[in-house]
Amino acid sequence: MIYQISVFLENRAGQLAEITGLLAKNNVNIRAISIAEASDYGVLRMIVDDAEHASAILLENGNVLSMTPVSVVAVPDRPAGLADVLAVLADAKVDIEYMYSILAHGNETAYMVFRVSDDEKFANAINGKGLRIAEKAELGLK
């Protein structure tokens, strides 16, 4: 299972720099990042190479966070690659809460992080259509 670290962000200049600086100092590699924002606050969503280590550091430094299980799907790196994946999910009636892309390691695959309403339905739909849920190792995650 891949865990996303979700961190509460208040609307204040420099907060993002503080968090990324803290991770840099502790040698954590951020593999994917996405921000959801409301007018006065936001949620920072990250996939990092060592989620346990990173969350411990963030907690020690007074952040509020949660570990959210997500799925990463290997998406063919070609036109319509993502469209095909999303069509499969639409057919299976899986609701996507949010998604964002993750850095690929120089092969012909792109990766998308998904947070969905029903993980089992999601896995069945993806696996049944010749698509593939990515493993931690290929993403450089511990």
Binding site: S6, F8, A38, L65, S66
Partner: peptide, 15 residues
């Protein structure tokens, strides 16, 4: 101040 109990990765839930 936000608390771990009330925090969620979903903006809608926080709202």
């Amino acid at each position: 101040e936000m608390t771990p109990e009330n925090f969620s990765d979903s903006l809608a839930k926080i709202a």
